[in-house]
Design a binder for these strands. Structure first.
Lengths: 110, 110
DNA sequence: ACACTCATATAGCTTCTCTATAGGTGCAAC
DNA sequence: GTTGCACCTATAGAGAAGCTATATGAGTGT
């Protein structure tokens, strides 16, 4: 386990959610768990961060959702990527790469 | 040249400023130029972002500043890292590394 | 005198994330 | 059967940070 969970960098949550959904639909808390798993426990997205983001992203047309039943027989809202959402994932992946390269260069500058 | 400048990820500006000052004192716009140079033009920190950040960081005790004269005979405020600021640079470098690793893992997850 | 660049400063806005809290439902233990 | 717990969604309220736009002043060149 990786010690303490770190706070997100603002602007990375959307990308993490898009990526989490890229392999298939999930419900809210499922997304949260998937992000935790994908990042080896580094990030821990709490409901109060997650749901507003999901609503915002659905509003933006990146996600679509349906009520369904979780693996524990509970009422849950399942989210999946729209076509636009898949495109957005690519955009944000590229942006992240650009930022990461720039930061890396900056940090090793003399 | 790297096409269009990208917006900062919130939370990275402090680190960039600390790093920019790690090789010696600079005045405000000098910091801005140094960041642009360190990141090969990827980031472009405008005055409206920079100065509030500098004031905030000085308030936090990471920077100290003095009025002086720029290389163009202009009144300019020069900033340098305090001891606390140098420590903070290390902290933020580690945090960035952690985040970058987590994001990289997440993005290559299947 | 004028325009231009360098340099700092601040107000107002927006966006995003965090903390805290609340409500509803299935399930198991007692 | 009701108590308690884990699961799932939801929202309010607050705070931090960065962006745009604008203002001010000083030096430089024409």
């Amino acid at each position: 386990m990786s010690s303490q969970p770190t706070n997100l960098l603002q602007g990375t949550l959307d990308l993490l959610i898009l990526k989490a959904l890229s392999t298939g639909e999930l419900h809210g808390l499922g997304i949260s768990r998937r992000i935790e798993q994908m990042t080896q426990g580094t990030f821990c997205v709490k409901p109060g961060s997650l749901f507003p983001a999901l609503h915002r992203m659905e509003e933006a047309g990146w996600l679509s959702s349906l009520w369904g039943e979780s693996e524990n027989n509970r009422r849950a809202r399942f989210y999946r990527l729209t076509k636009t959402g898949k495109a957005q994932l690519e955009v944000e992946k590229e942006q992240w790469a650009k930022v990461a390269v720039a930061m890396t260069n900056a940090l090793k500058a003399t």
